[in-house]
Amino acid sequence: MTTLTINGITQQLEVDPSTPLLWVLRETLDLTGTKFGCGMAQCGACTVHVAGNPVRSCVTPIAAVAGLEITTIEGLAPGPDQLHPLQQAWIDLQVPQCGYCQSGQLMSAAALLASNSTPSDEDIDKAMAGNICRCGMYGRIKNAIKTVAGVQHFDPAPLALNKELTNG
């Protein structure tokens, strides 16, 4: 029996304690927002928060996180029908394409801002380096993090685009 506290709900689970947290989330608890991408902590799609820190759930046995506060993408927003400011920024800047990696990207970004509300470019690069986006939306992800961090002196290239349209 392993005791897990996920998104504020504590429950006891009859699962092999060596099972990675990812599979317990996705298969036992149907919290499918956390994604499988590589199985070896290379891509970040499975990122969740454990005691506020970003953790790759695909290589984290549940025994290692028993009793700790776990947050998944489903629990990132402050309440029902609300969005975390990063989630709103992700929509405002039209960040996702396929969207598969974005749960992990958002969890990494949220952990960064929770510990450093005014990150530098280097801080952002470092915090996000573990998350792959095969659709290549890194520029938008970075800009979205900056809008939330209140850093206004960046080049919002994607936003400026519409103003440059010319009808030939």
């Binding site: 590589c38 290379q42 792959i132 290549g136 890194y138 520029g139 080049d155």
Partner: peptide
């Protein structure tokens, strides 16, 4: 896997400026 078939990550990604001609 991604350790030996790597994908570009944020720190190596350039600034990309896009322009559209209609």
């Amino acid at each position: 896997n991604f350790h030996d078939y790597p994908s570009l990550r944020m720190p190596e990604s350039p600034n990309i400026e896009t322009h559209i001609i209609n």
